[in-house]
């Protein structure tokens, strides 16, 4: 997996998109999180080079924006893999073998939770509760919930076959 620094150097950076997003949303009350979400969604992560641009438009210090990017789990500092697999590690899923599922997925993809496969196809992440606790263990693949999750159902969801 490429580190954040390498990714930042390698990848082209679309400053115009960041500026367009920030200018478009600056009129909201409390615009920073909506802007960061929009940048994260459109560009796949919040590049370090986006921070001063957003700070300038919102009349904030770079430190204030950087601090917010770093605080929240959602804002990525480097691009994720093509598919994002979030697997729940909270109590209701633990009660139904959620930890065994995590280990199974780590073996299947050959990466620990929090990393991306070398072919950049899959990013595996821990999440604490997806609100599907009566159908646990639960996972989310590219934003879609998978209930009574197991390795096969998650692989099917990655392959685009809905649950």
């Amino acid at each position: 997996m490429a580190g954040p620094a390498a990714a930042a150097e390698d990848a082209a950076f679309d400053a115009a998109a960041v500026i367009e997003i920030a200018e478009g949303l600056r009129g909201l009350e409390g615009p920073l999180l909506p802007i960061l979400h929009a940048v994260n969604d459109r560009l796949g992560h919040v590049d370090a080079r986006a921070v001063p641009l957003i700070a300038d438009i919102l009349n904030l210090s770079r430190a204030e924006v950087h601090g917010v990017v770093g605080f929240y789990h959602d804002f990525r500092r480097a691009p994720a893999g093509r598919h994002r697999v979030q697997v729940c590690r909270a109590e209701a899923c633990q009660a139904m073998g959620g930890e065994a599922l995590v280990q199974q997925l780590e073996r299947r993809f050959g990466i620990p939770c929090g990393q991306t496969t070398a072919d950049r196809q899959v990013t595996l992440e821990a999440v604490y509760c997806l609100g599907n606790c009566a159908l646990s263990p639960a996972a989310m693949v590219d934003g879609a919930l998978v209930g009574r999750a197991d390795g096969e159902r998650i692989a099917a969801a990655i392959a685009g076959r809905a649950p």
Binding site: A134, A144, L145, V146, G147, A162, P163
Partner: peptide, 11 residues
């Protein structure tokens, strides 16, 4: 509902 969809309601 997302939970129902998670076990195949859409299909």
């Amino acid at each position: 509902d997302a939970a129902a969809l998670s076990v195949g309601a859409e299909a």
